[in-house]
Write a protein that binds this DNA or RNA. Structure first.
Length: 740
DNA sequence: TTCATTACTTAGGAACACGCGG
DNA sequence: CCGCGTGTTCCTAAGTAATGAA
């Protein structure tokens, strides 16, 4: 497919160029037939019968019509000049309206400079603010620096106070209380001014297996060279996995393994089937058992060592603040296992050495030292990027990075900005929808395809679907890369008209299956797109993500295909929460409602998971618990009854008290039962759905925080510790009437 | 302008830790 | 107190989209 696209693009380029030349000729009366000469529209025909339209005005553009049926309306347009105007308004004149929006903000925001918080909100709206503000940037920079210094001073104070105050206070406060969201942001592409870190932690070196653990080839024990042995252990460790039985996996592994062998080994070991790794495999199993059975002291020791490494390598200083690093450990060598049907599964992922590593830090920082006797590949000082360390991985040749934790300023700001963009989309989504509906009728194929694809992205929250290189990765698609074979059209299905059935593998080879009724126009268009195509042809052959995103960029500043996913996810959560939450319910029931709203989003975004292996069992366990609780409840009720009867007869204080106690017991048990039942429902509904992904990446956390505040639900019930760290900005700034 | 490269976000599953009930 | 199951954290693959070089 990629190949085909390349071909097409070249063709386009060629044509565009030609068109200009032809127009020149036309201007000079070089033998072209003028079909229209209205002030809004030029229509002229080439010798090859193609008709070229040119709309004139601010947004002048060319369109090529290749069929006669397109020509007829064009003539009609000519005769009715008014209609031409109308067409123009609908089709091409709208972008200026959209474009003016951010400019409005731009003129407003400087006036709001004084209020820090307000101004920042707007800052998000106009990220591309021109360099005019440069002087202000400087100010901002200084401000940032000043504030950072203040905090540093506080730190110093705290340190002094440590002796008296005790460690807790001094250690925790400065970092946890830094509210970066109340400070100015860099606006000129600079990501930081100061960055210092200790570099990565390398994978532990290979430890050869003891000599009594043998590898057998063709039934005979064979001592392997350390390099070959290491790769063999990678395979041995995976022996239980299903994919060591897969052909591609075995083939790739064997090929890469042989590369590590000595020539002697290479000549001996020629067939993977004759290799016996079982002793190695047993050895590793025994080792992991031993690790589990370790004494508390030993475990504690390991834990402490890990903590020490975390303290040393797990943090960096960025702009005077200590920030947590996400993945400071280099990926250890092993066998690559891509997801789905990956053509490269089983290949050897090589060990990363210091000479593979690029370090990024600021010039005036203390550079990290490479391990003794080694060198870094490079030390650079690029403050336009956020990564600290990078290296090139050998499977796909892509670059891997060490970056900061989601709780860091640099990630948090970006996350916040993402939701602000989605909120801006909310303001103009109606117009964009109206426009793509209009575009379904366009005379141009590429515009119709673009409009239909955008409709899918909006309605079904599909991913954009970049092209991928064939044979390098699993065959998965997104919207723009859908192929004819991935959809089926039903003029009628189960009593619904114009149903489209989607069935394809998306990101991570997760299946997307959905049957959706669509509008008639969309349906007809799809039929048109599929005409005369093979199943493996692109559905949208005149579209790719870059064309689509370029178009979206014109509709709204900062708009790309993925913004629709964020927008639709967040707006769905907000609307579902409104719908599902009832005031008189207790907290567990409200949380069930929240989870249900979350679930609606996860379903929309197709976030699936493999049903947990223990699912059935744990469901049964829960049911047993519920049954037991029911019994307990009826017992308690019976006791209450008899206590009441008793109280009626005796009429003394003691028996009255007993009634009260029993009543409370019944109430308590009822509540517990209710809780269990809610839990069961929640779990059942969640069998194949993963909530985490949407919660972490798509749902504006301020919606959840506002919901918690509104209904008096502790935010801890919705977000765990890590999530609260990531969303600290939202927890701090959203109040109960926050509207997405 | 185009294409490849680079940077950064999103994703599911495995490993791990920890709390709860027996 | 222990074992088990679950929630959390880690891991890194696989996307999207911006950037940069030709």
């Amino acid at each position: 497919h990629k190949h085909k696209d390349k071909y097409k693009d070249k063709e386009h380029k060629h044509k565009d160029h030609k068109k200009d030349k032809e127009r020149e000729k036309f201007k000079h009366g070089n033998g072209y037939l003028v079909l229209s000469d209205s002030p809004h529209l030029e229509i002229w025909s080439r010798r090859d019968q193609c008709v070229i339209l040119r709309l004139i005005g601010l947004y002048s553009c060319y369109a090529e019509c290749v069929t006669l049926s397109c020509l007829l309306p064009a003539f009609q347009m000519k005769s009715l000049d008014g209609k031409v105007k109308k067409e123009k308004e609908n089709g091409f004149a709208s972008p200026p309206h959209v474009k003016s929006e951010p400019e409005d903000d731009f003129y407003h925001s400087p006036k709001q400079e004084k209020s820090l918080k307000r101004e920042r909100d707007d800052d998000n709206d106009s990220e591309f603010k021109p360099k005019k503000i440069k002087t202000e940037n400087d100010k901002k920079g200084k401000k940032r620096k000043r504030e950072a210094e203040e905090i540093n001073q506080k730190k110093a104070k705290n340190k002094k106070g440590e002796v008296a105050d005790g460690k807790k206070k001094a250690k925790k406060e400065p970092e946890e209380k830094w509210k970066w969201w109340e400070e100015e942001r860099y606006t000129d592409g600079v990501k930081w001014k100061f960055l210092e870190h200790k570099g990565p932690v390398f994978a532990p070196p290979y430890e050869p297996v003891p000599s009594h653990v043998k590898f057998y080839y063709d039934g005979k024990p064979m001592k392997l060279s350390p390099q070959a042995e290491e790769v063999a252990t990678f395979f041995a460790k995976m022996l239980d996995h299903e994919y060591t039985t897969k052909d591609i996996f075995r083939k790739n592994f064997f090929k890469d393994w042989r590369k590590e062998m000595t020539s002697e080994e290479k000549s001996k070991i020629t067939d993977l089937k004759k290799c016996n790794f079982s002793e190695m495999s047993e050895y590793f199993k025994a080792q992991s058992e031993a690790r589990k059975a370790m004494s508390k002291e030993e475990k504690l020791k390991i834990k402490e060592e890990n903590e020490r490494i975390l303290q040393e390598y797990g943090f960096c200083i960025m702009d005077k603040h200590k920030e947590r690093i996400a993945n400071f450990r280099i990926e250890p060598p092993g066998l690559f296992r891509g997801r789905g049907d990956h053509p490269k599964m089983g290949m050897l992922k090589r060990r990363i050495r210091p000479q593979d590593i690029i370090i990024n830090c600021s010039k005036d920082s203390k550079h990290p030292e490479p391990p003794p006797g080694t060198k870094w590949k490079e030390v650079r000082h690029d403050n336009k990027v956020t990564w600290l360390v990078s290296w090139t991985e050998n499977i796909q040749g892509s670059i891997k990075y060490i970056m900061l934790n989601p709780s860091s300023r640099i990630k948090g700001e970006k996350d916040w900005q993402k939701y602000e963009t989605a909120r801006r989309l909310k303001k103009c989504v109606d117009r964009i929808r109206a426009q793509y509906r209009e575009d379904w009728k366009s005379k141009e194929m590429r515009i119709r395809q673009r409009a239909v694809a955008l409709y899918f992205i909006d309605k079904l929250a599909l991913r954009a679907g970049n092209e991928k290189e064939e044979g390098e990765t699993a065959d998965t698609v997104g919207c723009c890369s859908l192929r004819v074979e991935h959809i089926k059209l039903y003029p009628e299905n189960d009593g619904q008209e114009y149903v489209v059935e989607f069935d394809f593998l998306g990101k991570d080879s997760i299946r997307y299956y959905n049957k959706v009724p669509v509008e008639k126009r969309v349906f007809k268009n799809l039929q048109l797109f599929m005409e005369n195509k093979e199943p493996d042809d692109d559905l949208f052959d005149r579209l790719n993500t870059s064309i689509l995103n370029k178009h979206l960029q014109e509709l709204m500043d900062g708009l790309t295909a993925k913004v629709f996913r964020t927008y639709n996810a967040s707006i769905t959560l907000q609307q579902q929460l409104k719908e599902l939450t009832t005031a008189d319910e207790n907290i567990p029931a409200k949380i069930l409602s929240y989870n249900r709203a979350n679930r609606a989003v996860a379903i929309l975004c197709n976030h699936q998971r493999a049903p947990p292996k223990t699912f059935e069992k744990s469901m049964q366990n829960l049911q047993t618990k519920i049954d037991a609780k029911r019994d307990q409840l009826s017992d308690a009720k019976r006791e209450l009854k008899s206590a009441k009867a008793d109280a009626k007869v005796r009429k003394d204080e003691k028996s009255k008290k007993a009634v009260e106690t029993k009543k409370k017991a019944v109430q308590r048990i009822e509540e517990q039962l209710m809780k269990l039942e809610v839990q069961a429902t929640d779990r059942e509904e969640n069998k194949q759905i993963a909530l985490g992904t949407s919660k972490l990446n798509y749902l504006d956390p301020r919606i959840s925080v506002a919901w918690c505040k509104k209904w008096g639900i502790p935010v801890e019930k919705i977000y765990n510790k890590t999530q609260r760290e990531k969303f600290a900005w939202a927890i701090d700034m959203a109040d109960e009437d926050y509207e997405f």
